[in-house]
Design a binder for these strands. Structure first.
Lengths: 118, 118
DNA sequence: GCAATATATCAGGTTATCTTGATATGATCT
DNA sequence: AGATCATATCAAGATAACCTGATATATTGC
């Protein structure tokens, strides 16, 4: 019952403005962040592991990880020297898969959109 | 049977790279485009109608509409003087709703992310 | 404490994206 | 045809986002 009330209150605080929605979308709007998310959806990984997989400068990976953490999609845990990142919002997998499906059927269209670069 | 083969071929062309996924996400990453999509998910509308709702310069709305059309999310149909836009990919509603849910539970986090502006 | 390892942060230059105003296209009406 | 209405396109300036290299922080092992 308290749960229902809590849900109701939460539901009011829902309905975020388009500004925030857009910000979320831009969060997914970077190929590097998507690759990182994909790796983390596979399983939790340390930063070095991600860097190895992506073959990118460390600062670049670290910056994108910070972004993902800031947005609350991933969390960190220190294990000795290394820091392990993992996805904490289960729905991230669903969004990415849904997007992947849509893109699969619109690849040519999307690729041709000149207002958005590659 | 030809259909099955076609599907198989299509399925190979599936699995789009992160670059295209990211491009899609950036397509949703603009508040104006999201507002337009929301209006069009409500029902098909003419350009003028959208302009009225958004109170924005005509060229701005038109540019964003072009982007949405380019990506294959909306289609147009001329009716006399006006041009009617409507959403053609049913999944657009699902993506936006899913994103809305995630953002609702992460609003504070996302808002605080300094790597992405408002 | 000191060196080494792992990760984070920051500033500067570069590129991408958004916005605006002006102009172009295209259809309708008289 | 000419005028008008509806929409599209383009160029230029402003802003946002990305990348890199250098530096900072934090933990472990000696």
């Amino acid at each position: 019952m308290a749960t229902a009330k809590a849900r109701a209150i939460a539901s009011i605080s829902h309905a975020p403005g388009e500004t925030l929605l857009a910000k979320f979308a831009r969060g997914l709007g970077d190929p590097t962040r998507l690759r990182i998310l994909q790796l983390l959806l596979d399983r939790p990984r340390s930063v070095s592991e991600i860097i190895d997989h992506l073959s990118m400068p460390q600062s670049r990976v670290s910056n994108h990880l910070a972004c993902l953490k800031w947005c609350g999609y991933v969390a960190t845990e220190r294990q000795g020297r290394v820091i392990i990142y993992r996805v904490i919002d289960r729905r991230m997998r669903a969004v990415i898969e849904l997007i992947r499906e849509i893109v699969a059927d619109n690849a040519a269209h999307i690729a041709s959109c000149a207002r958005i670069g590659d």
